[in-house]
Write a protein that binds this DNA or RNA. Structure first.
Lengths: 219, 219
DNA sequence: TGTATCCGATACGGCAACGTATCCGATACA
DNA sequence: TGTATCGGATACGTTGCCGTATCGGATACA
C-alpha cells in the first residue's frame, strides 16, 4: 500500500505549509526564502522542491486549505441560526455568530490576520494566484451573507446599509482593528475588536419593534 | 551658493522616492531591490547609497512626506467646516469633506492604497520604522476626528457608535473597497467606494431632528 | 581661470538564494 | 529476502543583490 508513504508526504507538506505561514507573517511572502521555509520545517530545499514547484504553488495550497476551513467554520457557526427560536435574544445570538465567523473564520489568529493581508497583496501582483484567492473569499462571503440575510428576514429586521456593504464593513473593521492592535503591541488579550463589532452591528440593524422610520431604509 | 547643488540633490531624492513608491506597489517592499529602484529612477546604486543609508530610511522619508501631505490636505479640507452656516445641507457638506480627506489624504491613488498596506506590514516587522508610521497615522486621525466631532457638536448631531470607531470604520471600509476593486480589475472609475462611504455616514449619524431615541445613543 | 567640493558612476569582493541533477536510505511488495 | 519505488538530502553552478571604496565630471566661488 502507498498509504504509509503517502501520509508521510502529507506530513512534510503540512510542516512546510506551517513553517511558510509563520514566516510569511514575520518576514512577508517575498521576504521569506525557500531555504528558510524548508529549514524551519526541518527539511532542506530538496524536500521543498520535491513537494512544490514554487513558492507560488505553496501559496495556492495555503489558500485552498484556509478556504476549506473557512467554509467549514462558517457553515457550522451559521447552521444553528435557522433552528433558533424567534425570541428576544435573537440579535445577541446573531452577533455572537458573526463574531465567531469573523474570529475563527476570517481572521483566525494574529498570524493569519497578517498573512491574509500578505496574500491579498501577493494576489494583486500574481495573475495566476489572483483568481484562487478571490474565489475563496467570495465563496465564504456569499455563504455568510446569505445566512445573515435569511436570519434578518426571518425576524423582520432590516439594515441601514446594503448587506454587501455591511459584510465588507464588518470584515474590514475587524481586520483593521486587529492589525492596529498588533502594530501597537497591544496583545489584544481582551479581543477589544469584538466590542466595536457588536456596536456596529447594533447600530446598523433596525429591529422591527423600533418603528424607526426616520432613518431606517430597508434594503 | 549651494542652492543649485542642493536642489539637484533634492531632485534625485524625489525621483528615487517616486520610483520606490511605484515598485513597492508592484513588487512589495521586500521584493523591490535597491538596484531596481535606482535603475527606474534613472540612476545607479551609487546614487541611492549617496542619498539614503538603506531602504528602511527611504521608507521613513516616504512616510514623512506623506504625513505632511496628509495633514496639509486634511487641514485644508476641514478648515471650511467651522465657517459654513448652520443649514440643512450641513450633513452633505461634512460627507463631502470626509470623502475628500479619505480620498486625497488617506488613500490617494491606487498605488498609495497598496503601498500604505505594504508600509503597515513593514512597520510590523521593523521596530525602528514602526513608531514613525504610527505617529503619522495617529496625527492625521486625531486632526480629522477632532474636526468632525466639533462639526457634529455644533449641529447637535450624535453618532450611533463612538467617534474613534467611526473613523476606523470609514478608513478601513474605504481602503478595503479600493483594494478589492484593484484586485478584481475594476478600474474603479466611478469611485464606487464613495457611495458606500456616504451610506455608512448617513446610517451612523443621528440628526437632531430625528428624535430617534430608540436606537440613538449619543456618545 | 583655477581650485575645492559636491554627487553620482564605476569597480570590487562577497554572500545568499535559486533551481537542478544526482544520490541514498527507507519502505512496499512479491 | 530481494528488488523497485519513493522521498528527502547532498552537491553544484549560476545569478542577483548587497555595501563600500574609489573615481571623475560638473558646479561654485574666489
Amino acid at each position: 500500500m502507498t498509504t504509509t508513504v503517502s501520509s508521510r508526504r502529507q506530513h512534510t507538506r503540512d510542516r512546510l505549509i506551517d513553517a511558510a505561514t509563520g514566516l510569511f507573517a514575520e518576514k512577508s511572502i517575498e521576504g521569506a526564502s525557500v531555504e528558510e521555509i524548508s529549514e524551519r520545517a526541518g527539511f532542506t530545499r530538496g524536500a521543498f522542491y520535491s513537494n512544490f514547484d514554487s513558492k507560488e504553488e505553496l501559496c495556492l495550497e495555503i489558500v485552498r486549505q484556509r478556504g476549506e476551513q473557512l467554509l467549514e467554520t462558517t457553515r457550522r457557526a451559521l447552521a444553528v441560526i435557522p433552528d433558533s427560536p424567534v425570541n428576544a435574544q435573537w440579535l445577541e445570538e446573531i452577533i455572537a455568530k458573526v463574531i465567531t465567523v469573523l474570529d475563527v473564520g476570517f481572521t483566525f489568529d494574529d498570524n493569519w490576520v497578517l498573512v491574509r493581508q500578505e496574500l491579498r497583496l501577493y494576489a494583486f501582483r500574481n495573475p495566476t494566484f489572483r483568481p484562487a484567492l478571490i474565489e475563496v473569499e467570495q465563496d465564504a462571503n456569499n455563504l455568510a451573507s446569505e445566512a445573515l440575510a435569511a436570519a434578518l428576514a426571518r425576524h423582520g429586521a432590516s439594515l441601514r446599509i446594503p448587506l454587501d456593504q455591511l459584510m465588507v464593513t464588518l470584515d474590514a473593521f475587524c481586520e483593521r482593528t486587529r492589525v492596529d492592535s498588533i502594530l501597537n503591541g497591544d496583545s489584544d488579550a481582551g479581543h477589544s475588536w469584538r466590542d466595536g463589532l457588536e456596536r456596529i452591528v447594533r447600530a446598523l440593524v433596525v429591529l422591527p419593534a423600533d418603528e424607526d422610520r426616520a432613518s431606517a431604509e430597508p434594503v
